[in-house]
Simulated scan of single mutants.
Amino acid sequence: MIDLDIGGACPRQQLTCALSQALGLPTDPGAGTDALTIGTMDYPSEPALEMVARAAMQARQDSLLALFANDQTSICGGLALIYRTRDGARIMQVEPCRLSSSKPIIVITTDRRQAFRLDKRCLLRSCAVPSRAKVERGVERAWQDIRAAMSTVEVDPDQWEAGYFSLFTDAQAFADFMA
């Protein structure tokens, strides 16, 4: 669990922006297909993740979700990657990993068996898993960089609506948000 408290403000918008930047996604991609969606999920559950996985398959977009136990906490329970395959989609718990300060982060499964990075076309691709020692240092470095970026990123509400999302899987939380 990662504490993303940024001084009382909700960290979700800043986190999605910081993750996008850290992965190396262009800030103004222009026309074309977005192959990766980044967002947050409050009240995660297996049925909710399955619903998002089905949507990812239908939209032909992989998804990276920051999971929060509820809509009030600033503690991120982890990241879930929904990665499309020929047979459907896999849902994996992942961590960000920055192997070098000059390169974008990659995401690595928590079991350290798979790693993914964005290619030149901004499609998520499988890549070699670095050594365990490099991964452990890289995960720590990635979270430090993401926290630092969160404190400096300015969120444009119009940009948030267009390119990022937050998913509520609890009906009351959604009603409270809309009120």
Rank of each mutant, 00 (worst) to 15 (best):
33 T>W: 02
47 P>S: 05
55 A>F: 08
47 P>Y: 02
60 R>Y: 13
46 E>S: 09
59 A>W: 11
48 A>N: 00
30 G>T: 01
43 Y>V: 08
32 G>N: 05
46 E>M: 07
45 S>W: 01
59 A>L: 11
39 G>C: 12
56 A>F: 03
28 D>N: 00
37 T>S: 14
55 A>N: 11
26 P>N: 04
52 V>R: 08
46 E>P: 01
60 R>F: 06
48 A>Y: 00
42 D>K: 10
47 P>H: 00
28 D>P: 00
60 R>S: 13
35 A>N: 14
58 Q>Y: 11
48 A>V: 04
38 I>L: 11
43 Y>T: 08
46 E>I: 12
36 L>N: 12
36 L>V: 15
26 P>Y: 01
55 A>M: 08
47 P>F: 02
34 D>Q: 15
55 A>H: 06
31 A>I: 03
38 I>R: 08
39 G>Y: 13
31 A>Y: 02
58 Q>I: 04
41 M>T: 03
47 P>D: 06
43 Y>G: 06
54 R>A: 15
41 M>N: 05
35 A>R: 09
64 L>W: 08
62 D>T: 05
57 M>Q: 15
51 M>N: 09
36 L>P: 12
29 P>H: 03
61 Q>F: 02
40 T>W: 09
46 E>W: 03
55 A>L: 09
42 D>Q: 07
44 P>Q: 03
56 A>W: 07
59 A>N: 13
40 T>H: 04
